[in-house]
Design a protein around this nucleic acid. Structure first.
Lengths: 248, 248
DNA sequence: CAGCGCTCGTTCACATGTTCACAAAGTCGC
DNA sequence: GCGACTTTGTGAACATGTGAACGAGCGCTG
């Protein structure tokens, strides 16, 4: 209840907010007006207590005995996430990924609009990508200022990423989504989120590798009669419990 | 040193291994034979103690007073991550993102080879994407078995993702990289990693929103003479590099 | 309008992850 | 060889995040 408490919101909670938001949108589309923490939890693939705690950080408006009002909660979350206004973004690097993101319309409905795409290759300048025309990377700083860009999306090869990030930062951008497989070195007040597909694949590979090793050693150890078939714990982290196989 | 200890490796450590791997590759390219935890930490953007602890989970392959042998460490990490052999992947959904990933060669050098791309749209079947030809999604299960696919990459629209995941799972795939903005409901032994660009953008937006709010309230509170100009703490002082966050 | 059942919000114990600090263990110069 | 110096490996404090349990408040019903 203390207003001071609401100031500090855990990172983990923040990362879940967009998921709740998505679930609530779906509920709204299904014309459901109320949602219990239990229902929301199942849809979001998390624990119900976590949902309640997450929402309580914002002084949330649930009704005991009833649940949360879908519309109301949506408004609250949308405001917290700043989805009420527009977020101009710029994409640096018009390769496969950059182009795909530029064409993809899935963000615009949440207020993220790509206002420019730049590339360093002069041969690509002028090319049409979605509704935009590729511009030269020289103009990056200029474009940032012109469109009041807030979020920079880096999809260059790793070698070019740092320079792109520096240019963005100097032009005033403080939020960067980095797809390049490099660690960017930037001032402390710049928030970087890394998305690296290769890293994700390697994490999956690690677990596969472990699984194979566990199975192999289990088979090897299976010569005594008392083998432990289910003893190899899956070591899931955030994994959903497969409690319901709602195939129907 | 106890062998039992090495069994349990924290998720967070696993997620950093690929980053270390990447840094070591770069060091190797620069002909450096030794790396201290300090150097590795700086390059990877983390704490030196964390590097040492992470690496120690796999055994002590450093030399006190000297550091880690780059080549040796690379071999160890590569083995842990299972990068010594090939990981056949399949991409479900040949939209913008799916196509971009299929064309992108950045994974193949780490053992991840895309062996097939499928799409549900008959009009797209037969189309060339990179070195592959798009096949119909009907053949998905068949292709998984044929190529012994281990990792499934879902790049379909959200509505189609669950079905794709089910098909993959029934065909024996236990590792899924999901780009679709949906929570997949799968058996507990299937490991899913979600990559959602919209979520990442919303997280950035949240922090931007907070920043703006902090600045606004600081300005509002500046009407008394004793305004605190540097009181809006973006991050605590000694932090030099940008605040870093990797996707889940 | 009182009791009852439902569900939120909060508290507490536990698990996971990070950072510090330092002894152990090695190298290098002499 | 020996002592000084460097850097690892790890135990222990600290911070963050999770999950279970439960009291408090709300609506429904008789």
């Amino acid at each position: 209840m203390s207003p001071a408490r609401r100031r500090v919101i855990p990172e983990a909670t923040i990362a879940r907010l967009p998921v709740y938001h998505r679930c609530l949108l779906q509920m709204q589309a299904e014309e459901r007006s109320k949602a219990s923490s239990e229902q929301l939890a199942e849809m979001a693939g998390v624990n119900a207590a976590k949902v309640r705690k997450d929402l309580s950080y914002f002084g949330s408006y649930g009704t005991r005995g009833v649940g949360y009002g879908v519309d109301h909660l949506l408004v609250e979350i949308r405001r917290e996430l700043g989805l009420t206004h527009d977020w101009p973004c710029v994409i640096v690097g018009a390769g496969n990924l950059g182009s795909a993101l530029a064409k993809f319309a899935g963000f615009s409905d949440r207020g993220f609009s790509v206002v420019a795409v730049v590339d360093i290759d002069p041969a690509r300048v002028g090319e049409q990508v979605g509704e935009l025309v590729i511009q030269h990377e020289e103009r990056l700083a200029e474009l940032v200022l012109e469109h009041a860009v807030v979020i920079g999306i880096i999809t260059t090869p790793p070698a070019a990423a740092q320079e792109a990030a520096d240019t963005l930062t100097q032009a005033g951008v403080r939020s960067i989504l980095n797809f390049a497989p490099t660690v960017l070195d930037l001032p402390a007040d710049v928030l970087v989120r890394d998305v690296d597909v290769a890293v994700e694949l390697q994490i999956l590979a690690f677990h596969e590798e472990r699984r194979a090793a566990a199975k192999a050693s289990a088979t090897a150890a299976a010569k005594p009669a008392t083998a432990k078939p289910a003893a190899t714990k899956p070591a899931t982290g955030k994994q959903v419990t497969a409690k319901r196989a709602t195939a129907s």
